[in-house]
Design a protein around this nucleic acid. Structure first.
Lengths: 319, 319
DNA sequence: CGGCCGTTTGAGCCACATCAACCGGGGTGG
DNA sequence: CCACCCCGGTTGATGTGGCTCAAACGGCCG
């Protein structure tokens, strides 16, 4: 679909040139094509900024960076960082300076599959950005039955409302596959948000975005059939991944077990299995070994009643 | 339960004295009793502030107040205004000055039952506070089936995330009974939020609160039986009303039809009817003509798996 | 008085749950 | 290297919660 070219191994200057190309191309086109091209241009410009930023070494003087010399630990891949930085700019509209302030206060961590970032009933001591991997937030009932209440893809802030959360977290958050996160202690976050209103606004935007998604899930759980619900979830996750990593295409990483799908959709795992088979038989998707391929996007959107409007942030009206 | 005394017809000084009494009483008590007493004290202090504020006439000079002479229109009852002001202070932690700034930019409006504040597919031009009455946000599908995604009681901000919302609203919001709202044009809100970060933070808190509630609904829709779901909704609405108007007691205004309950719970109206009867037969509730009486709170919470933790704002960690 | 809206009741049915068994692959320990 | 196991996916048989359709009921309002 969109951005097929690789952004790796290109200099900031090259990237900016490519972006300019796209903006030029966009002029005479129809509305949707123009939007796509401009989107691509923005992404390219962002990657240019990122390149530039990563090459420069000007750590925040006021607070020592958690990575000792102000440089990223070498095991944190540029691609992983990029998938966080992209939404910081495009969704949350943070300036480079604000992004740096945020990042120099963040501690990068690797988290194993199945490991929890937050535990139901325990206080939240930190804010988390998901850089790579996948996570879900869920509630476990007394009888062991679970219900997923949120799903996270790279670039998402896991708990943007952590500043205002009641003491005990209501849900656990745990990784669906080996992941990388950035962690910011709440105390740091509070002072950051105090000094830089843009960061508070960014967390607000992320919270609003989550709320939008929650409403969509409520609609889905309340009124859609099992097949539509499943299709809707697949569309949503695909679209959210696409927003952050447009170069991935129709095949992508989807590490949920059928039981976890069931816990997300309010179904039993047996039924999820049958519905998945039905979707496969209709040649809409292929899902094997944690890789999902969307084979017929329009048809899938159709049965899902999926309309990505609710995922389009930032909104046109700024502050 | 708590605050049984009337706050009407008392001077600010009297109210402050009563509050002081409560704080004094609280000293030796157990944690829960102390919390209740302190809560009462805070409410009393708030009402004292409110009295004082309403008597004073110092309209914001920079912007003319919508009500011409800087005084409230006489048809807007003090009680209605109080139910907005209470959460402005207790949940959103706004100073009197911020509250005034907000209110002098707000236009009070009466809205008929069934009338919509926001229409699915149309842009949102204003922020709304619900002063009195009740409202719901819902989505209508192609075949006319509806799903409610949020429910509002007096004191709620209807669309706190309106600043960052995509152009087209995804849901309609319409009144369940004759209501009073305060309306703030988005343009005003934007400049307000720019000048006064506390107001931005207040909207953030409200958005976070809504998100908490949404997660609870997702849990409820996904994993609870029809009976538990209904009980859960009743508990939630009662508790939210109680937070803003503790003097109301176990009987309160509940203007939803069975069809609307069904649209909220993802059920059919026929089934809602039968479940309601079951709850009545168990002597847990009485619901007639828009008045709901909770006859056995603990039992109802029990089958609902209701734990009000998610409604406890503000959170202990401030900014 | 009639019409309308919301509630109530009954009969039949279907989507999805539950229970239970089997399969296949990857990891682990002997 | 094999034996084993455990986890996740698959399949079938059977049960049930909640849906649909349909009709009657009751209060309110014009």
């Amino acid at each position: 679909m969109l951005l097929r070219l690789s952004v790796k191994n290109r200099s900031p200057v090259e990237l900016l040139a490519l972006a300019a190309d796209r903006r030029e191309l966009a002029v005479g086109k129809s509305a949707t094509v123009r939007a796509q091209l401009i989107n691509e241009a923005k992404l390219l410009e962002f990657h240019a900024d990122l390149r530039a930023w990563m090459q420069q070494t000007e750590p925040d003087a006021k607070r020592p960076a958690p990575w000792s010399d102000g440089r990223l630990p070498e095991w944190l891949l540029a691609a992983e960082l990029a998938s966080v930085l992209s939404p910081l700019r495009s969704r949350m509209a943070l300036s480079i300076a604000d992004q740096q302030a945020l990042l120099t206060n963040a501690v990068p961590r690797r988290v194993d599959k199945g490991r929890c970032l937050l535990e139901q009933g325990e206080p939240e001591h930190a804010l988390f950005f998901l850089c790579d991997g996948a996570a879900r937030a869920f509630r476990t009932m007394g009888d062991g039955v679970q219900q997923t209440v949120a799903h996270f893809v790279p670039g998402d802030v896991i708990n943007p409302d952590s500043l205002f959360r009641p003491v005990a977290s209501r849900n656990s958050v745990c990784m669906l596959e080996p992941s990388a996160v950035l962690e910011i202690p709440i105390s740091h976050l509070a002072s950051l948000a105090g000094e830089r209103p843009a960061i508070l606004r960014a967390m607000f935007i992320e919270t609003a975005r989550h709320a939008s998604i929650h409403k969509e899930w409520i609609f889905s759980l309340g009124r859609l059939s099992a097949e539509s619900r499943l299709a809707h979830l697949l569309c949503e996750v695909w679209y959210r991944r696409f927003q952050c990593a447009p170069e991935e295409g129709e095949a992508f990483d989807f590490p949920m077990t059928q039981q976890q799908l069931a816990d997300t959709l309010g179904l039993s795992s047996v039924h999820v299995n049958r519905v998945l088979q039905s979707l496969r038989r209709q040649d809409l998707i292929a899902l094997r070994k944690g890789e999902l391929v969307i084979k017929n996007w329009t048809a899938l959107c159709d049965i899902a009643q999926f309309d990505p409007g609710y995922l389009q942030y930032p909104a046109p009206v700024g502050l």
